[in-house]
Simulated scan of single mutants.
Amino acid sequence: MTSAEAASKHERVRMHVEQMITQGLSPHEKLPTERDLAETLEVNRQTVRRALDDLEREGAVYRMQGAGTFVSAARISKSFELTSFSEDMRARNMRPGSKSVEVGVEAAGQTTGYALNLSPRDDVVRVRRVRTGDDIPICLEASSFAAGSVPGLEDGIIGDSLYDDLRSRFGLVAVRADQEIHAIVLDEAQAAALDTPPFSPAFLVKRTTYDARSRPIEYAESVYRGDRYSYQLSISRP
Rank of each mutant, 00 (worst) to 15 (best):
D134R: 11
D134Q: 11
D134W: 12
D134V: 01
D134F: 10
D134K: 09
D134H: 11
D135H: 09
D135Q: 11
I136D: 15
P137A: 04
P137N: 10
I138Q: 07
C139I: 00
C139L: 07
C139M: 11
L140I: 07
L140M: 08
E141S: 12
S143H: 09
S144Y: 08
S144K: 08
S144A: 15
F145S: 05
F145E: 07
A146N: 14
A147N: 06
G148R: 14
G148M: 07
G148Y: 08
S149L: 15
S149C: 08
S149H: 14
P151A: 08
P151G: 10
G152Y: 10
G152C: 10
L153K: 07
L153M: 09
L153T: 01
E154Q: 14
E154N: 07
D155C: 00
D155V: 00
D155E: 09
D155I: 00
G156K: 04
G156V: 00
G156A: 04
I157R: 08
I157E: 11
I157T: 02
I158D: 15
I158M: 07
G159W: 11
D160K: 08
D160H: 11
D160L: 12
D160E: 15
S161V: 00
S161N: 15
L162W: 12
Y163H: 14
D164V: 05
D164T: 10
D165Q: 05
D165T: 01
D165M: 03
L166S: 06
L166R: 08
